[in-house]
């Protein structure tokens, strides 16, 4: 039975069929010592090149995420549905947070339609929504923006829904990268509650070291 399975698996992998492999004992493998922060970076925070709405060329992890507290959402400029209330909400959140945005907390909105949203389009969007400093709208190659969407978890297991950009504009992700603290909540939550959720996640520790 095992041989049949291996044969079938080998065929599926388009590799030569290997029969009669001797099963080696379990427990002989060596585990890699990868720091958890590094593992999160490798898996979920790709260092893809992006362009901000002010025309600055950046790398996602190196320039935007590393050592920072961040708030991340997805949008596209000509979105008439969900993006509008979420953006309006986040503008209120930004105001409630005051001048710390851009100082020790950074807002990023990544476009779901990079083929439409050039830096100039995103700049007009930011201006039209009265977005304050410390909030970057990001575009890039179609592949890189798609990689970011998938790696940051803004997906749907239903492929039909997954293809619809509107479905990915609802949630807001926030984190404290060096402390490996990440959480997300709906972008249409009340702005005061969003501030509470974001701060209680990223502004840590709250007690003196014991």
């Amino acid at each position: 039975m095992d041989q049949t399975r291996r044969a079938w698996l080998g065929t599926m992998a388009m590799a030569p069929v290997v029969l009669g492999l001797a099963a080696s004992a379990a427990g002989e493998r060596r585990w890699q010592d990868i720091p958890p922060r590094e593992q999160i970076r490798r898996r979920r925070l790709p260092n893809v090149p992006l362009v901000t709405h002010t025309g600055r060329h950046v790398r996602f992890y190196d320039d935007l995420i590393r050592d920072r507290k961040v708030v991340i959402s997805f949008m596209y400029a000509h979105c008439e549905g969900i993006c509008v209330p979420v953006t309006h909400n986040l503008v209120k959140v930004q105001r409630l947070l005051g001048d710390r945005v851009g100082r020790d907390l950074f807002f990023y909105s990544i476009t779901l339609k990079p083929w439409q949203d050039t830096p100039a389009v995103l700049a007009s969007y930011a201006e039209a929504n009265h977005v304050g400093p410390g909030w970057s709208f990001l575009t890039g190659s179609r592949a890189d923006c798609e990689t970011l969407r998938r790696r940051l978890g803004f997906t749907d297991p239903d492929p039909k829904l997954d293809r619809d950009p509107k479905n990915h504009a609802g949630n807001v992700l926030y984190g404290n990268e060096p402390l490996m603290l990440w959480a997300a909540c709906p972008g249409q939550s009340e702005p005061e509650w969003l501030v509470t959720e974001i701060c209680s996640q990223v502004d840590r520790p709250v007690t003196a070291p014991a």
Binding site: R5, R6, A13, A15, V18, L21, A23, S24, R29
Partner: peptide, 11 residues
């Protein structure tokens, strides 16, 4: 099939 890691890499 209880393939080991090495076997799976090979396949």
């Amino acid at each position: 099939a209880r393939l080991t890691r090495r076997e799976m890499l090979k396949l």
